[in-house]
Amino acid sequence: MRTTTTIAAIAAATTLLLAGCGGEEAADSEASSSLSMSDPWVKSADDGMTAAFGELANDGDDDVTVVAVTSPASPMIELHETVDDGSGEMTMREIEGGFVIPAGESMTLEPGGNHIMLMDLTGPIAAGDEVTFTLELSDGSTLDVEAPAKDYAGANENYEEGETDHDMGDMS
């Protein structure tokens, strides 16, 4: 989980590694070649659940859909949206159809909005750790992203299917 690469290098270069590609011609048309993620970060947590954020940008001519995310940090990861549950409370739940980033547009994953939800941490994520995520796109291509962990007090929305004391990371 930890690497010697600095946060700066990652944030500046937005380390995006193209993975799982076929021939060279095919690589160009893969959705992962037009998608990038900048300023990724993950909320530090001792155990349980937490969430990752950042800015997804699609500079291609076709819409890109993130259908799943995997990471060594959690065996189960969901793509979440945050919605008003009808009573004025904000609740997060799995987004149907994944994150769709229209051609030429971007999507901000942020506390209180769409986010990548780590459902069951394999171990603590401490501030300054770097967590690798693999974004799986609808055409089967993938994008690797490294996100530094930061302490963050917000992002405490309730989880619809979970117990109420599960939030996006535990600050204590």
């Binding site: 600095t6 946060i7 700066a8 944030a11 300023d39 970060w41 909320k43 954020f53 501030a127 300054g128 530094p148 930061k150 302490d151 963050y152």
Partner: peptide, 18 residues
């Protein structure tokens, strides 16, 4: 590393991560 990243962004007029 975290504090440097904060300082680098803030001194440039950009928000820190988180």
């Amino acid at each position: 590393q975290i504090l440097t990243d904060d300082a680098r962004r803030l001194t440039d007029g950009r928000a820190a991560l988180a």
